[in-house]
Design a protein around this nucleic acid. Structure first.
Length: 975
DNA sequence: CTAGACTCCTA
DNA sequence: GTAGGAGTCTAGT
C-alpha cells in the first residue's frame, strides 16, 4: 500500500444491527428465510465496490475489507467484567443473517476479517494506523460514535444509510469536541448500551463543555475541585475511577496482531459469476440483474448457489474462469487554476480562496464612546464607500427591541462599536441605570442617520430587515444596502442555511460567536444591553467584519453565476416591503378569541369525559403513546400504520379509518384533537402576540428559510390560520379591519397549475385556462372520458387530487394514500394521466435530468433551488429529491410572481392615489390589505392588475393569471 | 430547559 | 407525493 491509495473498512457487525432495525423486514420468497439485513448489506457493498464514483462517497477504493466481531468476549471483559453485560440476545430473525452476511462478503471476493479477543472496532483502528503509516487514506464505513475517535486528516467515516460523510468538522458539529477528544468525552458520558459506566448525570453537552474548559480528562479529574456546580463537582470526584475505567473501555486498540497485511486487502475486480451465484441463491433479483449488467455476465447461465448457516457452498460451483469485470479506474478531478483571469468567475474563485485563509482578530475592534470618536468613524465610513453594518438590540423581535448599539465595519478587521443603550453592569434587573461613558441614542442616530440614508455609501449587513424596521421606528430610512443572507440565499438555496454563523464557517472557516455563547439562553440568558462592553464590542465588531468579508466573496459570485437580477429585483426590494408589512401588523378581536377559547374548552371537556368513560380510565389523551396503549392495547382495536419509532400511529388518518369501521372512541379523539389544536395554537396563543402599543399582531417573515423561494411566517405563523373546517374558520373572523376600514383579500386562482401548463406546455390545460374552464373537470374528462356536464363530484375530486399530485412530483404511493385506494389503482391513474398529457412526463424527465446535471433547478425567472441529493445512490433519498426538484420550479415560480407583485404593489397604489391602502399579509398565493371603506372599490382593480400582470415583462406566460379579490370586515368573509 | 417525536394547521 | 411553523408530550440534561 502506498500514498494515494484508499482503504475502505466496513464495520460489518455494526451494519448488521443498524440495517436490521432501519430496513423493512424482508424474507426469501421460496422459504421465508429472513434476509432484510443481508439484502441491505449486499446493496451497500455493491455500491461501494462498484459504483463508488456515483455515490456521495466520491472516492474509489483501492483496498477493501469487511470487519466483524468474533465473539462477545474480549480483553475489555478483563478490564471490567460488566462490559456489555446488559446486552440482550439478538432477535431470532437476525441470528441466521450473521452467517449469511459473512458469506455475502466472500461472494463479493472481499476479505472478511475477525479476530478472537478483539472487537471489530480494534481491528479497524489497527488497519487505520497501518494505512496512515503507509501514507494512504482510509474511509470507515460506519456511523458508530465509538469509531469517531479515529477520524483525522487521512481518516474519514461514511454513513451508508444516510449517504453522509463524517469528517473532523462533522464530529465537532455533532459532539462539540474534535475526534481526538472523543475518548475522553465517552469516558465521561459512558454508554448504557455497552454498560460503560462513565459519570452519572454527565451527557455529551456537559462533557464537551468540561473538556472545552479543562482540555482533557486527566486535567479535569486533577482539577475537579474547581468545578463551580456543586452537584457536578461531587459526582465527578466520586466517579473519577469510573471515568478512568471507562476511558480504557472506549479507547480502541490499534495493535491487534492481524493475520492479513494491507496488501492482501487490495481490491480485486468483482467476480461476476461467483457473486451472481450467491445473489441468485438469496433471490435478490434486482441486484442480480444490476451485477449481471455491470459485469457483463449472463445471469441465466449461472446456477444459484446454496447458502448455509455454516459456510458458503454452491451446488454446482460458480464458473471462476468467466471473464471478470473491467477494473474500475480513478477519475481525477480537473482542478484547472483560474487565477489571473479577469472574469467574474475568476474573481469569485480568488475571493473564495482568499477567504479561507483569513484570520479574524476580535480584539482589533474599537469601542466608540464619544462624539469625536464617532465623527472619525463616520469619516472613515464615507472614505470606504462600503461599510459593514449591524444594529445591536435588546430583543430578536425588532417590533419590541430597543437599539443597544450601532456597529460599522470599515474594512477587513476594522470595526467600531457605538454603545448607546447599555445598562450599567451593577443595575438590578428592574433598574434602568444607564452605563456611563456612552453616547445617547439620539446623538448617535443624529450623527449616523445621514450616512445610513446616503445612497453613495453601501451598507452591508446580514438579515437587514430587522435593522430596516427598527431604524424606521426611529424615522431613519436605510438606503443603499446589501444583505449577505439574501445573497447567499439566491446563490445557494437548498444547500445549507444562511445564518451568519453558517456563512462564516463555510466561507471563512471561522467559528463565529453564537448568540447562545454570548448571552446564554432561557432563564439565565441576558439581553445585549447587559453585556459587558468589551465582549459587546468584540461580538458586534465581529458581525460587521464578517458581513463585509462575506460580501466581498458573495457579490462576485452573484455576478459570475448570473444571479444579480434575481437578488436585486426579487430579494433586496422585498426587505423594505416586508418591513412595512410587519410593522403595520393586523388587528385581531381578542374578545372573540377569548369567547371561542371558552367554547372550545367546554366542548373539549365534554369529550374528555366521554373518552375516559369509553376507555374505562382517565389518561393523557394528548400523549400518542398512552393513547396507542389504550386503543390498540387495552381495547384491542386493530392497529394500522406504525410510526418510524415502531409505535402504533394514532394519526387522524388511522383514527378516521377506525371510526369508519364503526368504532366510537376514535371519532371522539379526532374531534377532541381538533378542538384542543384550535384552542392551544390559535385562540389561546394569538392574543399573546398582540403588541402592547399598537394592539395589533405583527408576524415576522423569514426571507431565506425555504428552498423554493417562498416566504415563511413566524411568531406567530399567520400563514396557517385555519380555513378548512367551519369551526376553524371562526378563528379567521377574529382577524379584523380597524373601524371605518375593510380587509381586502386577493388570491391567485390555481397559480401552480397554470405555471405547470405553461412550463410543461400542455395544450389542453392551456386552452382550459384561456377559456376559463373548470380545470379539474377538464382533467377528469380527459382521463376518464366523462363529459364535464353533469360530472359526478367524486370523479372531479379524484382528478383534482391527481393534479395536486403532479405538482408535488407524484408517486403511486402518495396518490394511493391521498385517495385511499390501492397503489396499483393509483399507478394506473398516473399512467393514464401521462398518456393523456405526455408533455407532463417529458417535463418531469427533463427537470430531473437538468437537476442531475447541474445540481439545481430553476424557476421561470431564473431563481435556483439546489438539490444535491438528487445524485444520491440511496433510491429513496434520490426519489425524494426528484420530487422536490419537480415541484420547486412550479412552487418557486409562483413564489417569484407574488414577490414581484409585492415589490410593485405599494408604488402602484401610491400612483393611483391610494397611498393609504396597506398591504398587511402574504399567504403564498394571497395578499391581504387594509383600506379605508372609501378606497376599497378603487383599490381592488389596481391590486388585481398588479398581481395578474406580475410576471411581465420578465416572462410572458402562455396562460393568463387570474386573481379573485373581495373585501369584508374580517378575513374569513374577505377570503 | 432542550431536543426529538408526533401530530396538525396552511398553500 | 411539495413547501413550511408550532404545540404537546416525553426523555434526557
Amino acid at each position: 500500500m502506498k500514498k494515494g491509495d484508499h482503504l475502505f473498512l466496513v464495520d460489518g457487525s455494526g451494519y448488521i444491527f443498524r440495517a436490521y432495525h432501519a430496513l423493512p423486514p424482508l424474507t426469501r420468497k421460496s422459504d421465508g428465510l429472513p434476509v432484510g439485513a443481508v439484502s441491505g448489506f449486499c446493496n451497500m457493498l455493491w455500491k461501494l465496490v462498484r459504483d463508488a464514483r456515483d455515490t456521495d462517497v466520491g472516492i474509489v477504493p483501492t483496498h477493501f475489507a469487511v470487519i466483524f466481531d468474533y465473539s462477545s468476549k474480549t480483553f475489555r471483559n478483563e478490564l471490567f467484567s460488566e462490559y456489555k453485560a446488559n446486552r440482550s440476545a439478538p432477535p431470532d430473525d437476525l441470528i441466521p443473517q450473521f452467517g449469511l452476511i459473512r458469506q455475502a462478503t466472500r461472494a463479493f471476493d472481499l476479505p472478511c476479517i475477525e479476530m478472537e479477543g478483539f472487537e471489530a472496532d480494534d481491528i479497524i483502528a489497527t488497519y487505520c494506523r497501518m494505512a496512515c503509516e503507509a501514507g494512504a487514506d482510509t474511509t470507515i464505513v460506519s456511523s458508530d460514535k465509538d469509531l469517531m475517535q479515529l477520524v483525522g486528516a487521512s481518516v474519514q467515516m461514511y454513513d451508508p444509510m444516510k449517504d453522509k460523510q463524517i469528517g473532523v468538522a462533522e464530529v465537532i458539529e455533532k459532539w462539540g469536541v474534535p475526534p481526538e477528544k472523543m475518548i475522553d468525552l465517552q469516558a465521561l458520558t459512558g454508554d448504557s448500551v455497552d454498560n460503560v459506566p462513565g459519570v452519572p448525570g454527565i451527557g455529551p453537552k456537559t462533557a464537551a463543555q468540561l473538556l472545552e474548559e479543562f482540555g482533557d480528562l486527566d486535567t479535569l479529574l486533577a482539577r475537579a475541585s474547581e468545578i463551580k456546580q456543586n452537584k457536578r463537582r461531587e459526582t465527578i470526584i466520586a466517579n473519577a475511577d469510573n471515568a478512568r475505567v471507562s476511558r480504557e473501555l472506549v479507547k480502541l486498540r490499534n495493535d491487534a496482531p492481524l493475520p492479513e497485511t494491507l496488501d492482501e486487502l487490495t481490491l480485486r475486480p468483482v467476480n461476476g459469476p461467483m457473486l451472481i451465484s450467491y445473489l441468485k441463491a438469496m433471490e435478490f433479483t434486482s441486484l442480480t440483474r444490476r451485477v449481471a449488467e455491470t459485469t457483463g455476465t449472463d445471469a441465466n447461465a449461472i446456477t444459484a448457489g446454496t447458502v448455509t448457516l455454516e459456510g458458503f457452498e454452491t451446488a454446482h460451483g460458480p464458473d471462476l474462469d468467466a471473464k471478470p469485470a473491467a477494473a474500475s479506474t480513478n477519475a481525477k478531478a480537473d482542478t484547472g487554476a483560474a487565477s489571473g483571469q479577469k472574469t467574474p468567475a475568476a474573481l469569485a474563485e480568488r475571493r473564495a480562496q482568499a477567504g479561507a485563509g483569513q484570520t479574524i482578530d476580535l480584539s482589533a475592534y474599537r469601542t466608540i464612546r464619544d462624539q469625536a470618536g464617532l465623527d472619525t468613524l463616520i469619516a472613515e465610513a464615507y472614505a470606504a464607500g462600503v461599510v459593514g453594518f449591524d444594529l445591536q438590540m435588546t430583543s430578536i423581535d425588532p417590533m419590541l427591541a430597543e437599539i443597544t448599539g450601532i456597529t460599522l465595519g470599515t474594512g477587513a478587521g476594522q470595526a467600531g462599536y457605538i454603545p448607546a443603550g447599555h445598562k450599567a453592569q451593577d443595575s438590578d434587573l428592574l433598574g434602568s441605570g444607564r452605563m456611563d461613558g456612552q453616547l445617547s441614542l439620539e446623538a448617535a442616530l443624529e450623527a449616523l442617520g445621514p450616512l445610513l440614508s446616503d445612497p453613495s455609501v453601501l451598507k452591508v449587513g446580514h438579515n437587514l430587515k430587522a435593522e430596516y424596521l427598527l431604524l424606521s421606528r426611529h424615522n431613519i430610512a436605510l438606503e443603499a444596502f446589501d444583505d449577505i443572507m439574501l445573497m447567499s440565499y439566491v446563490l445557494d438555496a437548498g444547500s445549507g442555511n444562511h445564518t451568519l454563523d453558517a456563512l462564516a464557517q463555510r466561507w471563512l472557516g471561522h467559528a463565529a460567536t453564537t448568540v447562545k455563547d454570548l448571552l446564554g439562553s432561557g432563564r439565565s440568558g441576558i439581553s445585549f444591553d447587559r453585556l459587558e462592553l468589551e465582549r459587546a464590542t468584540q461580538a458586534a465588531g465581529e458581525q460587521a467584519d464578517l458581513s463585509l468579508r462575506l460580501w466581498s466573496i458573495l457579490k462576485p459570485r452573484l455576478v459570475a453565476e448570473g444571479l444579480v437580477s434575481i437578488y436585486e429585483r426579487l430579494e433586496r426590494p422585498l426587505v423594505s416591503t416586508l418591513a412595512r408589512m410587519e410593522s403595520r401588523g393586523i388587528a385581531i378581536d381578542r374578545q372573540m378569541l377569548s369567547r371561542l377559547s371558552g367554547e372550545l374548552a367546554q366542548k373539549a371537556a365534554g369529550l374528555e369525559d366521554e373518552i375516559y368513560k369509553a376507555a374505562g380510565e382517565s389518561f393523557t389523551i394528548g400523549s400518542p403513546k398512552q393513547l396507542g396503549d389504550i386503543l390498540f392495547g387495552k381495547l384491542g382495536l386493530p392497529g394500522g400504520a406504525k410510526t418510524k419509532t415502531g409505535q402504533w400511529s394514532t394519526s387522524a388518518q388511522v383514527l378516521e379509518e377506525l371510526a369508519a369501521e364503526g368504532h366510537d372512541l376514535p371519532r371522539k379523539i379526532v374531534d377532541w384533537r381538533q378542538l384542543t389544536k384550535l384552542k392551544s395554537t390559535y385562540t389561546d396563543a394569538l392574543p399573546g402576540y398582540v403588541h402592547p402599543e399598537t394592539r395589533r399582531v405583527h408576524t415576522s417573515y423569514s426571507m431565506a428559510s425555504t428552498s423554493t423561494g417562498r416566504l415563511s411566517s413566524t411568531e406567530p405563523n399567520l400563514q396557517n390560520i385555519p380555513i378548512r373546517t367551519a369551526e376553524g374558520r371562526k378563528i379567521r373572523t377574529a382577524f379584523i379591519a380597524e373601524e371605518g376600514n375593510r380587509l381586502i383579500s386577493a388570491d391567485y386562482s390555481q397559480i401552480e397549475l397554470r405555471i405547470l401548463a405553461h412550463v410543461a406546455d400542455i395544450p389542453q390545460l392551456k386552452a382550459a385556462f384561456a377559456n376559463g374552464d373548470d380545470i379539474h373537470a377538464i382533467t377528469a374528462s380527459e382521463m376518464f372520458g366523462v363529459p364535464v356536464e353533469g360530472m359526478p363530484r367524486d370523479v372531479r375530486s379524484r382528478a383534482k387530487a391527481i393534479n395536486f399530485g403532479i405538482v408535488y412530483g407524484i408517486s403511486a404511493f402518495g396518490l394511493a394514500n391521498q385517495l385511499s385506494i390501492p397503489r396499483e389503482e393509483a399507478g394506473a391513474y398516473i399512467k393514464r394521466y401521462f398518456e393523456r398529457f405526455p408533455g407532463i412526463r417529458d417535463y418531469m424527465d427533463a427537470t430531473k435530468a437538468f437537476c442531475r446535471d447541474k445540481g439545481y433547478v430553476e424557476t421561470i425567472f431564473g431563481r435556483r433551488a439546489h438539490y444535491p441529493d438528487i445524485r444520491a445512490s440511496n433510491p429513496s433519498i434520490r426519489a425524494n429529491s426528484e420530487r422536490a426538484a419537480i415541484n420547486a420550479p412550479i412552487q418557486g415560480s409562483a413564489a417569484d410572481i407574488i414577490r414581484r407583485a409585492m415589490v410593485k404593489m405599494d408604488g402602484a397604489l401610491e400612483a393611483a392615489g391610494l397611498g393609504g391602502v396597506r398591504m398587511l399579509l402574504q399567504v403564498h398565493d394571497e395578499l391581504v390589505f387594509e383600506a379605508a371603506e372609501g378606497d376599497v372599490e378603487k383599490a381592488i382593480p389596481i391590486i388585481r392588475k398588479v398581481m395578474e400582470d406580475a410576471a411581465m415583462p420578465a416572462v410572458a406566460l402562455s396562460v393568463p393569471l387570474q386573481v379573485d379579490a373581495r373585501a369584508a370586515h374580517n378575513w374569513d368573509e374577505a377570503h
